[in-house]
Computed example of a mutant assay.
Amino acid sequence: MAAIDLSDIKPNPEDRQPIEVEAAFMVIIRGNGIIQASPDINAPVVPQREVTLDEMQMASRRVYDDIQATKVANVVQMSVQQAASQAAQQADAQRLAQSLRL
């Protein structure tokens, strides 16, 4: 599936109709190379200029990389929580065994 520039569909912005889509999100490029993605596509933005293809590629890659890093961090956090829970259960079992002198 190829990406298309939806602004090319109608040359006059007043003639454009809403486009029905499955889902949407917005990626913006701020000063100092800050890339942000948001599910709020209705946030008011005022672009200073048109985006280049290279910027679109770079911003998309950064969003992808950030999502991957978040997923990995979540998996690591879950693993640490599971290990801590298991250690707490083992400590409880040892205390019980000691109190019963087993």
Rank of each mutant, 00 (worst) to 15 (best):
V76E: 07
Q48M: 13
R95T: 07
D40P: 00
Q48L: 15
A3M: 08
Y64C: 10
P18Q: 04
V51D: 06
V80L: 03
S60R: 03
V45Q: 03
Q81R: 15
R62C: 12
I19G: 06
E55Y: 03
N74P: 01
M56Y: 05
E55H: 02
M78H: 11
D66P: 03
I34E: 12
A88F: 02
S79E: 15
D15W: 13
Q57C: 04
D40R: 03
L6S: 07
A2S: 14
V46Y: 11
S79C: 10
Q17G: 06
I19E: 15
Q36C: 07
S99T: 00
R16A: 15
D54F: 05
Q36Y: 02
D15E: 14
T70L: 11
G31Y: 06
Y64R: 03
A97K: 11
N42C: 05
Q68A: 13
M58G: 07
D8P: 01
A97M: 09
A23E: 05
A91I: 01
E14Q: 10
P18G: 06
A2I: 15
A43C: 07
M56N: 05
S60D: 01
V27S: 00
R101M: 13
V21K: 00
A91H: 01
Q90Y: 07
Q81A: 15
T70H: 04
M1K: 12
I41L: 03
N42H: 07
Y64T: 08
S79G: 10
S7C: 10
Q81G: 05
S79A: 15
A24C: 02
M78A: 13
P13G: 03
D8A: 15
A3Y: 13
R101P: 01
D92M: 11
A24R: 02
R61V: 14
I35R: 01
Q82I: 14
D66I: 05
A93P: 03
N74T: 12
Y64N: 10
L102P: 04
R16P: 07
E22M: 13
L102E: 02
